[in-house]
Nucleic acid binder design. Structure first.
Lengths: 223, 223
DNA sequence: TGTAATTTGTAACAAATGTTACATTTCCTC
DNA sequence: GAGGAAATGTAACATTTGTTACAAATTACA
């Protein structure tokens, strides 16, 4: 295979190795190597192609006006860069992308990739699944972040777990995980939960949470 | 035309009326009418088709455990319901959907619609553009909501406006709009901005904001 | 089963934001 | 230019969350 790593890429899932190879016979592509530390793309640059990490890894980084940087996330093979944004209106990279190590990228033009999807229904569905799943994820995160108080977030979270109607749910996340998910600190979450418990809204035993006062609990998550 | 309203749908943009009609000759679809107040879908229901509002309108609504509802948004013709979520893994409607008035919906199966996109590159690009643009929007909102303080949000917002490097930007939003965008109250935003001004970080004159102390301003938006 | 690592509970204080209310300024339209 | 609407500035106080620190409980696993 030309790019063996692609056989475990969700984008090419369902395609045989031979089929993947076949694609790269017919399509225009190029690969580029970047030494460790090299700038791959600059934030604000137009997204004109699909870029897939073949080896090494890259990181997304934000730069403020003084040049200080904040790392956002790492991208490893065989993931694509900013996959969910590619075909957006005036799509631009939201962050700088820097090579963590010696890295090789596979680059396919947007329009070329569109043709590929047009020709292979599986590829199309794979990409659509990736983008839509990302939108679902972002939308879900947004919902929790837009609740004002921690009580609201927690009430909503508990209410959305399976079994909420029966009044008994199982929460399989640690306080820390949940706090990160909500975008708050762990002690603040613990305090909010413990207050709700002492007010008789819920009762918590390990991972099991019982909903004692549905009405008051709900009046938190709905305003 | 069978569904004249579709000619001004972004999803069918670039297609002639005759072409749109042609599509509905060949594809399996159905339309359903709902009287005002009828439940169109229930939150959690699997998304199995593309649903486009042809006439009337529907609203997304969340229900808490006691049955109290919160309106999320209205969907008018010729918009589709939960368009960005359709092909997501285990995609389900995030909210209840209720008809505001007598409403007619055009319903096309997911797989049927996939075939349509497979057969028409313009349709495919239109849909991809819609989904990716939505992902960009959600990601942008998320960025601002995940900054802890209002100062951070504001500093980041100002820094992202064109002209920030020159130290002089134009903010075309009202305080109220910006406060909503940040998910905070207007007086709180006003206070934060006025404090930053009195500390010599920025100076504000109407819509023009001057960045006076880049270093300290940046130390806010990056941690 | 015992021990170390992880997770949770809690407290006191600081910081940030929300709430409410009202005065002032700017903008729009006639 | 006058008048009303919209937007902004500001203040006092309540509420919420963050921060830091430490003890207790639980879990993982040797």
């Amino acid at each position: 295979m030309k790019f063996p790593v692609l056989s475990r890429s969700p984008l090419f899932s369902g395609l045989s190795d031979a089929e993947i190879d076949g694609i790269f016979e017919s399509v225009n592509y190029r690969s580029r190597s970047f030494p460790a530390g090299a700038v791959v793309v600059i934030a604000g640059e137009e997204i004109s192609s699909v870029m897939i990490v073949l080896s090494g890894s890259v990181r997304g980084e934000m730069t403020d006006l003084t040049g200080k940087t904040i790392k956002i996330e790492d991208v490893y093979p065989p993931q694509a860069l900013a996959a969910a944004f590619i075909y957006g209106r005036d799509a631009r990279y939201p962050v700088n992308v820097i090579a963590n190590a010696d890295t090789e990228l596979l680059i396919i033009g947007k329009s070329e990739f569109l043709t590929l999807m047009n020709n292979d229904r599986r590829l199309l569905l794979n990409y659509l699944t990736a983008v839509c799943t990302r939108a679902l994820f972002l939308s879900d995160r947004l919902r929790f972040l837009s609740f004002r108080t921690i009580r609201e977030k927690y009430a909503h979270y508990i209410s959305s777990l399976p079994g909420a109607i029966s009044g008994r749910v199982v929460n399989n996340r640690t306080q820390q995980e949940l706090a990160d998910y909500f975008g708050v600190t762990r002690p603040s979450l613990a305090r909010a939960v413990s207050e709700m418990e002492s007010e008789g809204l819920i009762s918590v035993d390990r991972r099991e949470v019982r909903i004692l006062d549905i009405r008051r609990l709900s009046s938190l998550s709905g305003t």
